[in-house]
C-alpha cells in the first residue's frame, strides 16, 4: 500500500481504471461506486441499492467481479479496475457478450444491464456456464426488476459458446 501505518483522514491511492492510471486522494469512507460515478464520471456503473443487494454496480477488480458499492475505494490501491466503459472496443464495436445481450433482447429499461454484463463476463471467465441452471445461479447476484432473465441467460449462454 502507498499508505503508511499511520492513521490519516485522507488516503492517497494509485490504481488503473479501464487501463488508465488514476491517482486519487480519498476520504476512506468513499465507496468505489461513488468514486467511479461522481469523481471519474464513469456513470455506466449504476447504483441500485448501495447495500450489496442488487449487483447493478458490478465491476471487475483485477479481473474478478465485485460490487463496487461495498468496496471502500481505498481498497483498490494498486489494483486494476474495469467498468462497463472498458468492454466496448476502441471503435465502439460491441463485445460478443454485449452483442449477445442485444441479440437476445436481454434487457428492458437497461439500468441493471451494465452490471449484468460485467457479471456475465466474469461468469464466463470463471467457467460457470455449464448449463442454464449454473448460469442462473451465478447471475443471481444481479437483480433485473424488469424481468429480462430469460434473455440474460440466453445471452450468456450464447457468448460462452463462442
Amino acid at each position: 500500500m502507498s499508505t503508511n501505518d499511520v492513521p490519516a483522514t485522507t488516503v492517497d491511492v494509485t490504481c488503473t481504471v479501464n487501463g488508465e492510471p488514476v491517482q486519487l486522494r480519498l476520504d476512506p469512507r468513499e465507496s468505489l461506486l461513488d468514486v467511479l460515478r461522481e469523481r471519474l464520471a464513469l456513470t455506466g456503473t449504476k447504483k441500485g441499492c448501495d447495500q450489496g443487494h442488487c449487483g447493478a454496480c458490478t465491476v471487475h477488480l483485477d479481473g474478478r467481479r465485485v460490487v463496487s458499492c461495498l468496496t471502500p475505494a481505498v481498497q483498490v490501491d494498486g489494483l486494476q479496475v474495469h467498468t462497463i466503459e472498458s468492454v466496448t472496443g476502441p471503435d465502439g464495436e460491441l463485445h460478443p457478450l454485449q452483442q449477445a445481450f442485444v441479440d437476445n433482447d436481454a434487457l428492458q429499461c437497461g439500468y441493471c444491464t451494465p452490471g449484468q454484463i460485467m457479471s456475465g463476463l466474469a461468469c464466463i471467465a470463471e467457467g460457470h456456464t455449464a448449463d442454464d441452471d449454473e448460469i442462473r445461479e451465478y447471475l443471481s447476484g444481479n437483480v433485473c426488476r424488469c424481468g429480462a432473465y430469460v434473455g440474460i441467460v440466453a445471452a450468456v449462454r450464447q457468448a460462452a459458446q463462442r
Binding site: R37, E38, A41, L42, T43, G44, T45, K46, K47, T83, I84, E85, V87, T88, G92, L94, Q98, F101, V102, D105, L107, G110, Y111, T113, P114, I117
Partner: peptide, 19 residues
C-alpha cells in the same frame, strides 16, 4: 431495440448520471 447499443455500453444516461 434501437437503444440497445446505448444500454449495453453504459452510454445511456439516466437521471442521476449527470456529473
Amino acid at each position: 431495440r434501437v437503444d440497445a447499443y446505448d444500454k449495453v455500453t453504459g452510454k445511456a444516461l439516466y437521471g442521476a448520471d449527470r456529473v
